[in-house]
Nucleic acid binder design. Sequence first.
DNA 1: TTGACTTAATTCAAGAGTCGTACTAAACCT
DNA 2: AGGTTTAGTACGACTCTTGAATTAAGTCAA
Lengths: 395, 395
Amino acid sequence: MSLTGVPTGTEYVRRQNTGLVLRALRAHGPATRTELARRTGLAKATVGTIVAELEAARAVTQDDDSVSSGRGRPGRPVALTGESILGLGLEVNVDYVAAVALDLGGNVRVVETRPVATAGTPPSTEELIELATDVRTALMADGHTVVGATVAVPGLVAHDNRTVSWAPNLGWDGRHLAAELEEAFGADCPTTIDNDANCAALAEAAHGVTTDVSHSLYITGTIGIGAGIVQDGRLVRGGAGFAGEVGHMPIGNPSRVCGCGRMGCWEASVGLRAMLSTVGIDEEDTPLQTALAVADLAARDASTRAALATLGHELGTGLATLAAVLDPAAIVLGGYFVPLGAYVVPAAGQVLAERLPSASIHLPQIRLSSLGIHAAALGAAEDALADVYAGTLAL
Amino acid sequence: MSLTGVPTGTEYVRRQNTGLVLRALRAHGPATRTELARRTGLAKATVGTIVAELEAARAVTQDDDSVSSGRGRPGRPVALTGESILGLGLEVNVDYVAAVALDLGGNVRVVETRPVATAGTPPSTEELIELATDVRTALMADGHTVVGATVAVPGLVAHDNRTVSWAPNLGWDGRHLAAELEEAFGADCPTTIDNDANCAALAEAAHGVTTDVSHSLYITGTIGIGAGIVQDGRLVRGGAGFAGEVGHMPIGNPSRVCGCGRMGCWEASVGLRAMLSTVGIDEEDTPLQTALAVADLAARDASTRAALATLGHELGTGLATLAAVLDPAAIVLGGYFVPLGAYVVPAAGQVLAERLPSASIHLPQIRLSSLGIHAAALGAAEDALADVYAGTLAL
DNA sequence: TTGACTTAATTCAAGAGTCGTACTAAACCT
DNA sequence: AGGTTTAGTACGACTCTTGAATTAAGTCAA
């Protein structure tokens, strides 16, 4: 309990209220100044000056067509513009690097994916930096301003959100990735790093299936299992930034050997490899293709369906544990679970309901991710814009 | 992602900075205005006006003895006073109700415990209200101001922090406890409710063994097992307020029958009853007395020590799971674990270390609670003062 | 077509805060 | 007794929000 907080001045108030206006525009769409005053609780005069400032910063634009609501002077709505301020989201994975640019209106402006240069080896830092700088320079050439970048990494990210602590699939121990990217960008483009599950959780909360709740849990499902935890709209990161490393929880079949060498890890029961070995299918190029092949088989074969139900049972056991600890309103399954949802979710949901700590506790809903392959990159872009919506960033 | 936040004015800035000054005084003790300016980063003039305001509100007092540091005009330090502003913490348990009054300086002014009126039955709401009003009127007669009250309840508390959702040990389903207490207090004394594990976690973070970290996990150990989760100095409460209900996680010996009727709940392996049945001792009046008796036996008997080590192993399995999810810097064991720490912690720590998701992750320290029986009530009192330190409360 | 009406947006002065500078206060040192 | 040094205050400049007054821009009805 050391001293926390910084001295606050009146400019802080302006920033706070600017963020409020931006969030009001994002949450409920374009609106006149008067309507914004109603939404935010600010005085009309205040909204007026804030909107003027945002207009000068090219964050919002005046809609030309004035909207009349019957009587009186018609209002001139302002809308978040996609032309100026963008957040850049980057994603590194074992077989590709990807970039997503998101504008203030919540629209995806750019999506670019590049497969790894030499197949079989993970991408190098250079490949990521090249993609990032390419996309950024292209955007700037079009007159956009990239206010920040965030990289989603499959691995442990230190609490400073600037250093990769451990990414065994990439072989990137302890890299100062954020600093390297900032240097490559040259100019002012603050860059942070985050875990891919965290980013995906943010993406679902902002654009996916958990926009309606503020406490959610995202489960990645590939070879490893990870979690992104959202509580009160904010990510739970843990003391050192390593929260959500749920793949190696001692849950599920205790006799299964995990890739980490231990026995009984959760991902040894519900990870992709475990699923394949119970179903008896070979791995394809990507987790998603593999899952689709399994889904195909399950549609025809009852024993495959039974195996997937068993896996769903183990999945539910872990979800019940997580739900007891975190009490999420919704749990989102991502990765390979998405194509197999029909076969896995019922069993998981049943275990979840059975193991609820008390009947008074609302059963968390299990939902399937809707964002597809670029969830993490999208969440990273959202994160890059977070400072803008928070009002922290001077525009 | 709905619209969050409220309009902010300049008075908000004052409140924020007032909280900053109060926290600076709490964290590092009495100080002159100049020293406070240095600690907080505020201008000397600002500190001057804030201190004057706090003095008028009788929150701080001028130390009479001016402290000279060699040259120059000596400073006149101000200190948080214990005479005026107090937080009232209340605790309900199966066999007693307790009250703790805490002043701004962090000193406990009053501790009062009342055993349940009719032995064998849990306390009634009336007994709690009587204790609360008695203590409060006595404090007010002495000229103190009670700025708020918080009740620690062994059970589920709804997210509004005003309603008990489920307290099977008390038989208090759905009570509007906060409203009842506020009515009994009559005047202005905002009252909230919180889970006892949450309160104890707060107490340890403010006055116990986790003052040095901002991410911690508190485990209660009585008949049931609960957890209080602190992340970034704030409690993690979950979507409906039910986070930390870890007693019924499916962890540990799956063949053990839990009091809830299910199999394999964690508390069926590490709860007090489970411990007693493995050790072969009868329950005494309170969990603590029971634990002391067991500790006594363990000091002499090797098989008891072995049984406790086994229990420690199951404890460690659950802690490893929790650590993987939450990444706390420290884990605090409370309740009956405290007297048995020497026999239980080594085994638990070993499992925790073995099951760490990655070698890159810092091993959470296992610590024993230092606050004794009144941890929850103390944490409740701390919670009642939280608004003051946050600067939210007008004094 | 014109004037009343209604609603949107801006202007303006008042009030609340912080901050840096200048100034006063209170000790010690020589 | 006067100089030096540090603590605390007074004051004007600046920022920000707010409510009231004012201006702007439509509809509606006669």
